[in-house]
């Protein structure tokens, strides 16, 4: 059974002067078990709207959403995932431990299990020292980490996170990326939204690009990265004159020469190099990266 099944959902909001804002149109998406799927889109693309519908906070105007076979918003569906809201806000008179107690109780966990799991997630997100301090005095990053901690508490198989890296410092970002990969290793499914391409590149199996409320692309991240290879950067020690004549050097410091070989020319280059017994020190793919891929989609839509 697919953890998440989104079928042709549309959603519009009431805007100013009775206008309708079409936040989502006919979005269809399927999240497979054990994958990390990133939803990438510019601000206002409809990512949070999608996640609010998934978590049952708002109903779609049309279409259906299933979470592990249960209707989105149902008690069964809500028990199935760990949710991190965008810029979460928690009762600020409580301490992290007290809040985790509430979350644990909501998932019908035993008091002992709540205690041990709280210790685990607080350690995981580096919050132990602040675990008994009221949330009033917490920085944005600390609240974000508590948000992740409470989403991890009952150790579900599915995670739905809205912008998990926002508000975090570089250490925090690295921590979360590591955490995601670790969860994937344990067979968990993660559905998260972001507007940062580097995050997708670092952790995602697949990426769904949403612009203007429509799904614009749904790709395997590795494929994009492979498709994106345009040529290669090659470093050769004292290349032969023939090689140097056919491939223009981009840099030459007398000892090491750097060449650019286009994707189509690579077989010819390798052939020539092996015949000539060239001393190749480095071949590095030169790719049009994910960011370029994303920007292309966005600009195509704006035209």
């Amino acid at each position: 059974m697919n953890p998440i099944l989104i079928e042709r959902i549309s959603k519009s909001y009431k805007g100013k002067k009775g206008q309708r804002i079409q936040a989502l149109s006919e979005l269809t998406l399927e999240v497979k078990p054990g994958e990390i799927l990133g939803v990438l889109g510019p601000n206002g693309a409809g990512k949070s709207t999608t996640i609010k519908i998934l978590t049952g906070q708002i109903p779609p105007d049309s279409g259906t959403v299933e979470i592990l076979g249960a209707m989105a918003g149902s008690m069964q569906a809500r028990s199935a995932f760990g949710y991190l809201p965008e810029n979460p806000a928690f009762y600020d008179f409580l301490t992290p431990r007290e809040y985790l107690h509430l979350v644990g109780a909501a998932f019908a966990m035993s008091v002992d299990r709540i205690k041990s799991e709280s210790d685990r997630v607080l350690a995981l997100l580096d919050l132990q020292t602040d675990s008994d301090r009221p949330l009033r005095g917490f920085s944005k990053g600390m609240v974000q980490r508590l948000g992740l901690a409470q989403a991890l508490l009952h150790d579900p198989d599915l995670f739905i996170w809205d912008e998990p890296m926002s508000g975090l410092d570089p250490m925090g970002r690295a921590l979360v990326k590591g955490l995601m990969l670790e969860l994937k290793r344990r067979g968990k499914t993660i559905f998260f939204s972001t507007h940062v391409t580097a995050d997708v590149e670092a952790v995602c199996d697949r990426v769904a690009v949403i612009v203007g409320g429509r799904l614009q692309a749904l790709n395997d991240v590795q494929e994009i990265l492979a498709d994106g290879i345009e040529g290669y950067q090659v470093q050769i020690l004292n290349p032969s004159a023939e090689l140097a004549a056919r491939f223009s050097a981009s840099e030459d410091n007398g000892v090491m020469t750097e060449l650019y070989v286009s994707r189509e020319a690579l077989p010819g280059f390798l052939d020539l190099a092996s015949r000539g017994g060239e001393d190749i020190r480095l071949i590095e793919p030169r790719r049009r990266n994910l960011e370029q891929f994303f920007l292309d989609i966005v600009s195509r839509n704006q035209r």
Partner: peptide, 14 residues
């Protein structure tokens, strides 16, 4: 207003 409901009412609490 303070969006506490976003975090609390998405838990399995009616």
């Amino acid at each position: 207003e303070q969006r506490h409901t976003t975090s609390v009412l998405t838990l399995p609490l009616s």
